[in-house]
Design a protein around this nucleic acid. Structure first.
Lengths: 343, 343
DNA sequence: AATTAGCACTCAACGTTATCGAGTGCTAAT
DNA sequence: ATTAGCACTCGATAACGTTGAGTGCTAATT
């Protein structure tokens, strides 16, 4: 792969990303100054096609990049664009300073990411079962109705109103809460199982006037937090993706929108990214789900205390403005990490 | 309006709802047995067009109903279809028996309504400020961090982690909670303002060892529940609406999808329905928002203790299967009411 | 050996034109 | 009041020609 071939490939990808039209040798020679004639470029393009970096939609058209072409572009050719400091400042202020819950922040972040990139944003909220037990409280709200509130380190708060078989005194509820906190604080929720709580319950009955059988709701409830619950997926700017000219075909629109409604599938796709730090990119058919063979994903992980807890990304056509998107996704991931890290 | 005209209008609307094609006199005569010739039907159709119940997309096409035509159909001609008992049973069981929060139920209901009707479902969750204060609890979860949990009669539960200026003892928090419950239980949240809480706070300081200035967060927080917060709108089955042949035009798809992303606008539209009991129908231009001149809404209210608290409905093309949809929407509204009424 | 000019060829996109047929309104007969 | 008959309308579809951006190949040039 000569230097000139790289230059030409880069120019073609850039051009195609801009215009969504197949790129011909003539246009290329006119707009970029390679110092060679279209004929030469044609030869190089033929080589690049041979090597599977480019393809022709039909015989008498220009070339467009293949997935392999995009991959090479993304890995070796592309120049990343930086986000303006001004924008960084204003967004940070906007998001991080707010006194609202994690859910709201995620929602806003996804909307913002979508508006910044003009593609559809996806955010995976932190997963409950991978969060860490911070605080639990049982509150009597009516005869035989107990409200259980669980606070986790990721900011997720879980409420549940539970019907208990027999009324439990406020004092006892207080005692149970305190005891559970003592024992469970700091543990990851997926490390807490029925057995562990069973042991705690048996210790508890010595200190309170509630029979063991009436404590069973605690097992039931807390251990349900231990099951992977397919953390919620938030979408932002679904309509944005329609602005892309590749979705000028009604059937494509329908298939993409159907896809975006299948939260479970999206969740699985996002799961394919290895929670490494940094930004991961999945281009077209690199992905195993054929529903999205002509979409790309750009995904980053956000963290809490060095531990990856969720993902944020963008879905768009393979002809995506990677150079912009990558920086923006990374930035939004950092915003979320920063929000979570707030004291 | 003769009886025969009504019959013909009804047949035309039915036919158009089925096929989405303009209805001609010949087809009509063939498929329905009016005992008259196409020519007669033509004359009747001309009269109906004159009276603005029908229109012609172009000179040499059949007729389609106008909004006025649909309105007449809905009010006077249509025969409502009933939902099968079997379906009623299975859905009720599915929804009402579940031990989950109102949010989840609403989400599921909207998905279900959409699947049953093949249009897009809209659900307005109960509004916090119109809910009734049931129980409040302040919980210390860390030095100078207090978790406030508010439970309302509509099943909405509000959590907020608050940074307090100085640490407050568990006992004092308990006392504050108890006192607030005593005073506020049973009140509608929009009846509770800063002033009221100010009075309570001043009484409180006599019983606890916290200075008044450190109780200000209570005012701040609780009175924020009193502002109309544009209760959340849940959408179900956005992609369903695209199956309608009227959305075979890309621009229409885009405009509808943009509309569905504007939660605020949807909220306003839903607000135009007068929370009466029963099902309300808004056909095309009857609605003042011109973005949706060719959509219809079918909306019903769900209740808690006789008080309307939220709305559920469907958005689809004016050519909607009203006879099915109306029953289904009503049914789903009843399901929600029933869920809320659970002891 | 690499580059380039020249040229014949390809093919989607677009515009023009013709045809078809479902549907209409009108008139005159029933 | 109803209907048969008929000329007319007009969107949809198909057939056809033209255009132009683009290609690959060959032969000349550097």
């Amino acid at each position: 792969m000569t230097e000139r071939k790289k230059e030409i490939l880069k120019a073609i990808v850039n051009e195609y990303i801009m215009t969504a039209e197949p790129v011909g040798s003539r246009t290329l020679a006119r707009r970029y100054d390679f110092g060679v004639s279209p004929a030469t470029i044609r030869n190089e393009m033929a080589d690049l096609e041979e090597a599977n970096y480019l393809e022709q939609p039909h015989r008498s058209a220009g070339r467009i990049p293949t997935d392999k072409g995009y991959r090479f572009y993304v890995d070796d050719l592309m120049e990343l664009k930086k986000i303006s400091q001004k924008m960084i400042g204003s967004i940070k202020e906007n998001i991080i300073s707010k006194q609202v819950g994690i859910q709201e922040i995620i929602q806003q972040t996804s909307q913002m990411l979508s508006d910044l990139t003009n593609y559809t944003a996806l955010v995976l909220s932190p997963q409950l079962e991978e969060s860490i037990f911070r605080h639990l409280q049982l509150i009597s709200i009516a005869e035989r109705k107990v409200l259980m509130v669980l606070v986790t380190d990721t900011g997720l708060i879980k409420n549940k109103i539970i019907d208990v078989p027999e009324s439990i005194s406020t004092g006892d509820l207080e005692m149970i809460s305190r005891f559970l906190n003592e024992r469970l604080s700091g543990l990851a929720l997926n490390k807490i199982d029925k057995e562990a709580i069973g042991i705690i319950n048996r210790e508890l009955v010595n200190r309170i006037s509630v029979p063991l059988r009436n404590l069973y709701f605690i097992n039931e409830e807390i251990s349900s937090y231990n099951i992977p619950e397919n953390g919620k997926i938030y979408l932002g700017g679904t309509a944005h993706i329609l602005e892309q000219p590749e979705f000028n075909d009604i059937n494509k629109i329908k298939s993409v929108l159907k896809l975006l409604e299948q939260k479970q599938l999206l969740y699985n796709i996002m799961g394919d990214f290895n929670k490494k730090t940094g930004v991961e990119i999945m281009i077209g058919s690199e992905n195993s789900f054929q529903e999205i063979r002509d979409c790309s994903f750009v995904v980053a992980t956000y963290n809490l205390g060095g531990r990856p807890v969720g993902k944020i990304g963008v879905i768009g056509p393979t002809r995506m403005e990677y150079s912009n998107v990558i920086g923006t996704v990374k930035f939004m991931a950092d915003i979320l990490s920063e929000f979570l890290a707030k004291p």
